[in-house]
Computed example of a mutant assay.
Amino acid sequence: MRRLLLIAAAGAVLASGAIAQEEDPFADAVEMRHGLMLQMATDLGKVGAMAKDEVPYDAAVAGKAAANIAAIASVLSMDQFPAGSEYQKSADSFALPAVWTAQDDFLQKIADLNTAAAAFQTAAATDLDSLKAGMGGIGGACSACHKAYRQPEE
């Protein structure tokens, strides 16, 4: 009897996962891209605080944060943006339909982020002035993509 109850409980858990997946088949992709962006924002916050002279410049911290930003930029692709995972169609998504209708431009913006992140990785670990100069490229790349392809949070 106990074994039957355990099997029934396991079946219920698996069924509820299948139902949740049917409700929003893009939940994992949206969660993945949110996680990547959250990590990038965390690292940008570290170097941004240095650039604003809110915290002392630390080459090791700046270099690690910039390396993280470059690593995240390097994995961004359409894999995190499956068709159908846009704003108001997938829970918690802020991706606008233009991601798919203007996919070539979207991918170019990812490439631009990669270029800016690679340059920033070198600059951030050099000195405070280089870090400050490199922030513009990263900020510009992020902003260009978000303005065109991300629904502002309400």
Score class of each variant (00 low, 15 high):
Asp28Pro: 01
Met40Cys: 01
Gln103Asn: 05
Ala133Arg: 03
Ser85Cys: 05
Gln80His: 09
Thr101Lys: 04
Ser16Arg: 00
Ala65Leu: 04
Asp104Gln: 09
Ala27Leu: 10
Val30Asn: 01
Ser77Thr: 11
Ala10Leu: 14
Ser85Trp: 05
Ala27Val: 07
Leu6Asp: 01
Met32Tyr: 10
Ala133Pro: 05
Glu54Leu: 01
Glu154Lys: 12
Arg3Ala: 15
Cys142Trp: 13
Ala144Trp: 03
Ser90Met: 07
Ala20Trp: 13
Gln88His: 10
Gly63Ser: 04
Tyr87Thr: 11
Lys52Trp: 03
Gly11Asn: 07
Leu14Ser: 09
Ala15Gln: 02
Asp105Cys: 00
Ile7Ala: 14
Leu36Gln: 13
Leu128Gln: 09
Val30Thr: 12
Met135His: 05
Gln108Thr: 14
Gln121Cys: 04
Ala124His: 02
Asp92Trp: 13
Val13Cys: 12
Ala51Asn: 08
Val61Ile: 15
Thr101Val: 02
Gln80Ser: 11
Leu107Lys: 15
Pro56Trp: 10
Ile19His: 08
Pro56Asp: 15
Trp100Gln: 06
Asp105Trp: 10
Ala117His: 07
Asp79Leu: 08
Leu76Thr: 05
Ala95Glu: 07
Ala20Gln: 13
Ala41Lys: 15
Asp28Ala: 15
Ala118Lys: 13
Ser85Lys: 01
Leu131Met: 04
Glu86Asn: 14
Gln21Cys: 02
Ala8His: 00
Ala62Tyr: 09
Arg33Thr: 12
Trp100Leu: 01
Asp43Ala: 12
Met32Asn: 14
Gly17Leu: 15
Glu86Arg: 04
Ala20Gly: 02
Glu86Pro: 01
Asp104Gly: 00
Val99Met: 08
Phe26Glu: 06
Thr101Cys: 00
Lys132Cys: 02
Phe94Met: 12
Gln103Phe: 00
Asp92His: 15
Ala125Phe: 09
Phe120Asn: 01
Gln80Met: 11
Ile19Cys: 07
Ala144Leu: 01
Leu14Ala: 15
Met78Tyr: 01
Leu14Trp: 08
Val13Ala: 13
Phe106Trp: 06
Cys145Gly: 05
Ser16Cys: 07
Ala15Arg: 04
Asp24Arg: 11
Asn68His: 11
Asn114His: 07
Arg2Gln: 12
Ala98Tyr: 00
Val61Asp: 13
Gln121Tyr: 04
Gln108Trp: 02
Asp43Pro: 06
Phe94Gly: 07
Thr126Ile: 05
Ala111Ile: 03
Met37Arg: 03
Arg33His: 07
Ala59Asn: 09
Met40Ala: 14
Asp53Ser: 10
Ala133Lys: 10
Ala59Gly: 04
Ala60Asp: 09
Trp100Ile: 02
Gln108Asp: 10
Leu14Tyr: 00
Thr101Asn: 03
Val75Lys: 09
Ala51Phe: 00
Ala125His: 05
Asn68Met: 10
Asp43Glu: 15
Gln121Glu: 13
Ala10Asn: 00
Gln39Tyr: 11
Met78Lys: 11
Glu31Ser: 13
Ala9Phe: 10
Gln151Val: 13
Tyr149Gln: 06
Ala116Thr: 06
Arg33Val: 14
Asp112Ser: 06
Arg3Asp: 14
Ser90Thr: 11
Ala51Asp: 02
